[in-house]
Amino acid sequence: MENINSFISYLVQQGVPLDTVILLLMLPIIVTLIAFFRQVIGIKAFSIYTPAIVTFAFLAIPSLRYGVAIFVSVILVGMLARFILKSLRILYLPRVALTLSIIAFVILILLTFGGSMQRTGLASVSIFPILIMISIVEKFVATQIEKGNKIALILAVETLVISIAGYYLASWSVLIKGVIAYPWLVLLTIPVNIALGKWGGLRLSEYFRFKEVFKNFK
């Protein structure tokens, strides 16, 4: 690496993996991006934690394709499981436990399939990103119960969109080089978030939502 900040090189010499340092520095940038999506564009997703953690899961999987494939199958199975388990009439936690178990089996099948198709990339995905994705199901199921299937699905798609955007941002080589060379730049997210938190303008999505009102203003 050509241009490394002295603080970072000190950390690396002390045995902290460079990847860990980069990911920690990326975290404020990714969550700021998520806040921006919510406040300015109007994409909600499942709050802030879920899209952030899914972004990191994507970064930890060798190819974005596989990450998206796992995400989509987790959500689909989560929806299917709801239909199957509905007739059982059981309480919330056992129901989520059953859903998670079903998903674990499905992922296992997916990995077997990946292995047999010689897709070593899919077969060799490490366990932690998979666990992260499985755990978002709780959020999904809770939303399903509270707000219904449709809204849960919309929020899941929004989460996917934000996570993919986060993935591309955090794996953008210019940005990576930037934070390695000038880690203090990350502090800029503080004023950005304060500005976002004090911004009272219409969100982009609200221009569409209120389009009939705009028409009426003339």
Binding site: Q39, G200, G201, L202, Y207
Partner: peptide, 9 residues
Amino acid sequence: SRKILGMNA
């Protein structure tokens, strides 16, 4: 857009 109340405001 200033006449309309959005979620943020």
